[in-house]
């Protein structure tokens, strides 16, 4: 059985997926993800790429039961609207917490997880999900 997902794709995206590379606009001083060559807010090309600290806050979340093929293992899968310390927002999975214990405003940290596993023989895609901070006991 041949693999179905491109090794080149996982390779060229690794900085963004592993380390949350994002764009910062030097003109309007705003940040956005995924990184692009042109500012989505002011259109400027005066962009630099940065890496996120991984610290963020849950702004909203949903618990998904109709999960797409590739994500059914995670069902029910929590998708959160996360606002990062650097100001940009993204949608990503929230893991290691029961949905009833998630609240808006909850602090989360970026954690490396398996995103997609390509069949029985293909590559494992790693990327960032979010988990609650480990609190002092």
């Amino acid at each position: 059985m041949m693999f179905e997902r491109s090794p080149a794709k996982i390779w060229r995206n690794r900085d963004v997926l592993y380390r949350l590379k994002y764009s910062y606009c030097r003109d309007c001083k705003r940040s956005f993800y995924p990184p692009r060559g042109r500012c989505i807010y002011c259109g400027s090309s005066n962009i630099e790429h940065r890496y996120s600290s991984g610290r963020g806050v849950v702004k909203e979340f949903t618990v998904v039961y109709q999960t797409p093929v590739g994500f059914t293992d995670m069902s029910p899968m929590v998708i959160g609207l996360i606002e990062m310390e650097e100001g940009f927002r993204l949608l990503a999975q929230i893991v290691d917490v029961k949905p009833e214990e998630i609240s808006n405003g909850m602090k989360v940290e970026a954690v490396l997880r398996r995103m997609i596993v390509d069949g029985e023989t293909g590559l494992i895609y790693y990327g960032i999900k979010f988990a609650p901070l480990i609190e002092k006991s």
Binding site: D73, M74, V95, D96, V111, L112, R113, R114, M115, I124, Y126, K129
Partner: peptide
């Protein structure tokens, strides 16, 4: 470990 964890993700953390 959860289904989306393995030695790499644990080691990374």
């Amino acid at each position: 470990a959860a289904l989306d964890e393995d030695t790499i993700t644990i080691g990374w953390r």
